[in-house]
Amino acid sequence: MLKACAFLVVCLTLVSANALADCRVHRGEHVVLFSTTDDPSVLMWDSRTRLREYHAASFDEAQAMLPHAVLASPGTHGDVVTCLPGYVVSPLFTSPDDAVGVTISSGPLKGTVRWVLGSDVRPRHKN
């Protein structure tokens, strides 16, 4: 009985921790790409590692990484393939951001998979 209770507590703790560290979007979700209002276009990366390094790097290092990125127009559609919660860390961020793998479903890059920052994707509600 005691062991069952302990198991239950552990399970509940794990579930709670996962819930706390959850991504803002989930696999299969339809999304729209849109960055900040100042510059809403979105940089999409060919790997999640580069996405992370870009945000952790200095300006000059980040500039050198630009050939590995593609600029998507705001409003580009995509479907979430995967999401890594809190994967991207930057000294200029107040808290870590998610890395989201997206299959582009509109525009010239349609069909390709790219990595974008969690704050650059918005859930899309189909009519």
Binding site: S41, L43, L66, L92, F93
Partner: peptide, 20 residues
């Protein structure tokens, strides 16, 4: 496109630096 990306890079960094 390269210039657009650089513009985005500047924009990102300036936004983040201003926030900091």
């Amino acid at each position: 496109e390269e210039l657009d990306k650089r513009n985005k890079l500047f924009s990102d960094y300036e936004t983040l630096t201003a926030a900091a």
